[in-house]
């Protein structure tokens, strides 16, 4: 009995010495580490809507967007590819949480300006933030010459918008966002239309491989608009190849700025009034981050 006790006590002394050998680093890890969630979407736009992504400081994003004619216009129009609307834009990352941009569309020769800021970034670790919250504000002015008897003033041709983006990366593959949009047109094409339109926007992404993702976005317009106006729906594929992101999609909207897609979309998506389109994004590093080692 004594011997057993003795053996047990011996074991007690030896055990902690052996237990330490399993992992030397365990218990030393930083438990308060906060990890910022990145790569919620592949680009700063889901398709039409602003996404939860920002440009990094010193990056310039050159974007070329095309929306072709309706696919159901048939082989004579080469399924719409004979026609194209285009928008070109330059966006700049001022800081990691602030970006500005300028763009121009061929449709109505719209010129648009953007300022977008990230208020909260999704994090995990100690005190996690479950969603990213961003705000984008923009100004759009139509610069196409008018042949009306009373020419619209500069103010008449102006539109303003404010969009809030609340998004979350649920896991490495799936991300979703809600993006309510408030748009004010100083004048409307149809005199009975509401000048202020609210758009309830949503977007999602599902990564099918490391570099390819399926994306969708949609806006539901709240407010009085002409009967011919429909809600913009877009479905597409994002392909990322290093510095480029190709967004190929089908959409019913020909417009590529907030005013155009929310209040000037006429295609009925589920009647086959869809257009092929793409967004091409090319990233340039214009301000080099200082090497700090």
């Amino acid at each position: 009995m004594k011997k057993l006790l003795f053996a047990l006590i011996c074991l007690l002394f030896i055990c902690p010495v052996m237990a330490q050998d399993t992992s030397l680093v365990s218990g030393l890890e930083d438990e308060n580490a906060v990890e910022k969630i990145t790569g919620t979407f592949k680009s700063t736009r889901v398709i039409n809507a602003h996404s939860t992504e920002m440009l990094y400081k010193g990056n310039m994003d050159f974007r070329i967007l095309h929306r072709f004619g309706p696919v159901n216009s048939g082989v004579k129009e080469f399924f719409g590819l004979d026609n194209a609307n285009m928008r070109m834009s330059f966006d700049f990352g001022i800081t990691n949480n602030l970006m500005i941009g300028i763009g121009r569309s061929t449709n109505l020769k719209d010129l648009d300006f953007l300022i977008k800021t990230r208020l909260f970034q999704q994090t995990k670790g100690a005190k996690p933030i479950p969603v990213s919250i961003l705000v984008a504000a923009g100004y759009i002015v139509t610069t196409q010459q008018s042949f009306a008897t009373v020419k619209p003033t500069f103010s008449d041709r102006s539109s303003y918008y404010l969009q809030m983006i609340v998004g979350r990366k649920f896991n490495s593959n799936f991300s979703m966002q809600l993006s309510p949009l408030l748009l004010h047109n100083n004048s409307t094409l149809n005199p009975t239309d509401d000048k202020t339109i609210f758009g309830l926007g949503g977007g999602a992404r599902y990564k099918v491989s490391k570099r390819i993702a399926l994306v969708a976005d949609y806006h539901y317009a709240v407010g009085k608009l002409d009967n011919a106006i429909t809600n913009p729906v877009s479905l597409g594929v994002d392909i990322e190849t290093g510095g480029h992101v190709f967004q190929l999609h089908f959409t019913n909207s020909a417009g590529m700025n907030e005013k155009a897609y929310l209040t000037q979309t006429t295609g009925k998506f589920f009647n086959g009034d869809i257009r092929f389109g793409f967004n091409l994004s090319r990233m340039f590093n214009i301000g080099k981050k200082k090497k700090n080692w």
Binding site: D21, V25, G39
Partner: peptide, 29 residues
């Protein structure tokens, strides 16, 4: 005579932020 290291992959800092994102998203997962 034992030695052990541990590090977080996300702790790697790059000169180009986009490169850092691709490193995490596409290469090291």
């Amino acid at each position: 005579n034992k030695i052990e290291f541990a590090l977080l992959i996300k702790g790697f800092e790059f000169e180009k932020a986009l490169m850092q994102e691709h490193f995490n998203e596409n290469y090291l997962e």
